[in-house]
């Protein structure tokens, strides 16, 4: 091999394979430098442990057990977070509610991301008539107020999906309905972002290079364009988890969300508005958990966005 000035300047010697860091290690390395993102990860792990490990200590039937003689009790040794309007233990309900809320947040975003990326990618990459049809459809969805769409769909699907058994637990069919509804009413924004990104990326020269090689359209989309538009997708997904948890809260508030007795952080807030002053423990605990989750997820999303971009300094 001819030793060029450039390779000398880089202090390279010999032909041996270096022990290079894999891209994944590099991403982790860059992620680690983001203090808030690491804090967010720990917070998320804590919240997940809270709702998973917590469930080992209290049973679901206890969380749903009502005792009207003990309604609206302030925090005490017996009920550390107090009791709600029908005397259920708030601590136990935040544990089981957390499972459902996190589940809804994650899966709704999964649905949203799959639909949004699929539609945005196809519209942006193929363009022309396909793009026109898909984008007019997206705009139509956009122009229907989301709340209206949520309500109609919730009403329409309510009771049509039976309860399911999973991992020894019973999930109300309404959880699945809410996940689908939230996912299917929130993908439009992401689809637009992805389309715009694809429109600009597909004109880049490295896409032309891939086409020259003979790479198929599917591979160009998946291997070349998608990794380059990861940043907005990740940001949108993180914000999506937070907004899905909040949206779940407001359809629960209108009585169309996850049906009681199944608890979610969202539906725990519903009855609380009558007791903002008189029984603040009703909203402080689930409210704080929602805020912590949303914050933690946003920090993690921020860190991921920087870490996934190889142009940010590696070392």
């Amino acid at each position: 091999m001819e030793t060029t000035g450039e390779s000398l300047a880089l202090g390279v010697s010999g032909e041996a394979e270096p022990p290079p860091l894999s891209p994944r290690q590099l991403i982790w390395r860059r992620f680690r430098r983001h203090k808030m993102a690491v804090a967010g990860i720990f917070m998320l792990i804590f919240l997940i442990l809270y709702s998973v490990v917590g469930a080992l200590f209290v049973s679901e039937s206890y969380a749903n057990y009502t005792d009207t003689t003990k309604r609206l009790q302030p925090p005490s040794a017996e009920h550390p977070f107090g009791t709600d309007t029908v005397g259920r233990d708030i601590l136990a309900r935040t544990i089981y509610g957390g499972q459902i809320s996190l589940l809804i947040g994650l899966f709704a975003v999964l649905v949203e991301t799959v639909v949004g990326v699929l539609i945005g990618a196809i519209a942006g990459y193929y363009g022309g008539a396909i793009d026109s049809i898909l984008m007019r459809f997206t705009e139509a969805m956009f122009n229907i107020p989301q709340l209206f769409l949520l309500l109609v769909m919730a009403k329409f699907f309510a009771g049509k999906i039976p309860t399911i058994q999973l991992l020894g637990r019973t999930f109300s069919g309404s959880v699945i309905v809410i996940i689908l509804i939230l996912g299917l009413t929130s993908w439009m924004y992401l689809a637009r972002i992805v389309r715009a990104d694809f429109l600009s990326l597909k004109e880049r020269e490295f896409i032309l290079a891939a086409r020259t090689i003979g790479t198929s359209n599917l591979e160009i989309i998946v291997q070349h364009i998608l990794p380059n538009s990861m940043a907005p997708i990740i940001v949108s997904a993180t914000l999506g988890v937070a907004s899905a948890i909040l949206s779940e809260a407001y359809i629960s508030f209108l009585g169309l969300g996850v049906q009681p007795p199944t608890a979610t952080w969202g539906n725990m807030l519903d009855g609380a508005y009558n007791y903002i002053d008189s029984a603040p423990w009703l909203w402080i605990f689930p409210g704080t958990l929602i805020v912590l989750t949303v914050l933690a997820i946003n920090f993690v999303g921020d860190g991921l966005r920087d870490a996934l971009d190889p142009r940010t300094l590696a070392a």
Binding site: P23, F206, L208, A209, A210, H224, P227
Partner: peptide, 9 residues
């Protein structure tokens, strides 16, 4: 600069 995918090794 434009003809190499920045996300690929």
């Amino acid at each position: 600069y434009a003809s190499l995918n920045p996300r690929m090794t």
